[in-house]
Design a protein around this nucleic acid. Structure first.
Length: 269
DNA sequence: GATATTTGACCCCT
DNA sequence: AGGGGTCAAATATC
């Protein structure tokens, strides 16, 4: 790598870091402002939309910068592919690429972002669960969601949610790894508030959030239950259609306590 | 009956 | 062969 390339690369990284810092600050602002506004009011909707636009815009910049960094690598891959068969540099490079990506394959879609959050369902989209699996060596199961508009609008966006294994550093706070795949092509106008699509039987209260939600009482997590790991069901109310539940301002504020975000692309767009 | 979720089975990829 | 993603029948809820 030449000095010029190297300096450009590090420059991009600095910009990306700065933008991500800005995003964290905006998120804090979001946490401050949203609880003040009247839920379902015009101002609250407008504020939501503005915050989403800000995130959308910054995400696009980040993804553009990252794509710029990867473009050389991708060009090299194409070059090697054209050259030859399976037992050449191509297969070697693809292997290396797979290692770099953690060897996680995906049938239908590209990995488009990842988030570590306390509120895995609060991302402004409506999702429908289509699977749950126990992953080997993992303490908690992984849940699979696709965009609720996949049927009527053919939106191929999916996401996986898995509770992070506690390292003790975060205390009693439960964090979830949320991975996004594919881009939303559905119309977003239909979704003003974030909805939750989850009707797993077990629901867990979160510290300081074990009050009633939307008039219903939160059912404590059954520690003896088979699926006591279903902690992604935070803020869920069993036996009600969760996808119809709006967050109140209190829950919204709690839900938005995103501890850390590692967004590699646009998850808000 | 319509719609959504659960979960075991199947399929794909390494 | 085994891990992980998706499918689809069974089940639940309204």
């Amino acid at each position: 790598m030449s000095i010029l390339e190297s300096s450009t690369h590090s420059g991009c990284q600095v910009v990306i870091n700065e933008i991500e810092h800005q995003r964290a600050l905006v998120m804090e602002l979001h946490d401050l402002i949203l609880p003040i506004l009247d839920p379902c009011s015009r101002q609250e909707k407008l504020a939501q939309q503005l915050f989403q636009d800000i995130f959308s815009s910054s995400s696009k910049v980040i993804s553009f910068l990252e794509l710029g960094d990867n473009s050389n690598k991708q060009a090299n891959l194409i070059k090697y592919r054209r050259k030859g068969g399976k037992n050449n540099v191509e297969s070697h490079m693809l292997g290396e690429e797979a290692k770099e990506n953690g060897n996680k394959r995906r049938k239908n879609a590209q990995h488009t972002g990842s988030v570590v959050t306390q509120a895995p369902h609060f991302d402004g989209y409506q999702w429908r669960k289509y699977g749950q699996k126990w992953i080997s060596k993992a303490k908690h199961s992984r849940s699979y969601y696709r965009c609720a508009n996949s049927k009527d609008q053919g939106c191929l966006a999916t996401k996986t949610v898995q509770q992070k294994e506690s390292d003790g550093s975060s205390g009693t706070v439960r964090l979830f790894d949320v991975d996004y795949y594919g881009q939303h092509i559905c119309k977003k106008d239909d979704i003003i508030h974030p909805y939750v699509v989850e009707t797993t039987q077990y629901s867990a209260p979160i510290v300081n959030h074990n009050q009633s939600i939307s008039g219903s009482t939160v059912v404590h997590n059954d520690v003896h239950g088979v699926q006591d790991e279903s902690f992604e069901n935070l803020f869920m109310v069993p036996s009600t259609p969760e996808y119809l539940i709006d967050f109140t301002d209190v829950e919204m504020a709690g839900a938005l306590e995103v501890t850390s975000m590692m967004i590699s692309e646009d998850i808000w767009a």
